[in-house]
Amino acid sequence: MKKAFAVLLPLVALLALASLVIGPADIGPIAALKALVAGGDGPLPLVMREIRLPRMLLAILIGGSLGLAGAAMQGYLRNPLAEPGLIGISGSAALGAVISIQTGLSAAFALALPLMALAGAVGAVLLLVLLAGPRGGSLTLILAGIAVSAMASALTSLVLNLSPSPYAAGEIVFWMMGSLADRSMVHVWLAAPFMAAGALLLARTGRGLDALTLGEDAAGAMGVHLTRLRLALVLGTACVVGAGTAVAGAIGFVGLVVPHLLRPVVGARPSALLWTSAAGGAALLLAADIAVRVVMPDRDLKLGVVTALVGAPLFLHLIWKTKGEQA
């Protein structure tokens, strides 16, 4: 675990630095960092502090929370194919956002979109807790999550279907692809408290997740409170994923691929994977967000598209490797 951090943390720092100095505005790296730290008048400090800094911070926050929530979800469900989106939080947050675009609320009031998305996430959590209440097992949680996901995606399609103009539909589709472009510090301050609360809840699941390696029965007999663990997992995931989707749209594959990729590095212990996976998620999203700006700077490539484009082949490669080992 320490070995993984020794590689991942400098990598995150390096990518964060790169994220700050790469952008459409033609600024030298030294001048850029100087303007960021020293401030002052003129457009340079403004670009650094109000455009690039929030973008970098959000990449770390969202990537980190997707990695963390993915590791916790896989650990709880004891399934390497689980991901934070499985329980329907991101879909419901997206529904809230889509409704705010459709009704014109987001045009009238800038923060309407993230706030409506958060409301969508809260609605999904209430439904989940109701469906997979105190007596439900992990299977009930998956089934409830799939039901909530399907419902949210159907309602999102309905909104698109009833969309009055192709422009609104286009805006919705582009928003759903996920992006960190043109976000401000307000978005950071909006997401950060939820993410901190969620991360705190998820970080405390480590011991319970370790015990669950032996199954629910053995974990229960080892003093793990399974109901409390499930509640912490659902609420923690809802906080981090809901806030992430609210400010950046749906970004897939990070929560699925990163824990899977890093599991062998930490010796497969679920508690060790939590923070390692958070660091890995931050690194991956920073890299993807840099790629978005470098590869096609004038085409507004969406972040969610890149993570899926990078994630899916990586995942295929992993499956290919596992297949080879089992044969």
Binding site: L214, G215, A221, A268, P270
Partner: peptide, 11 residues
């Protein structure tokens, strides 16, 4: 407690 189902979820 050692349950009958011999579960080892992770490698």
């Amino acid at each position: 407690w050692m349950p009958q189902a011999r579960e080892i979820a992770w490698p």
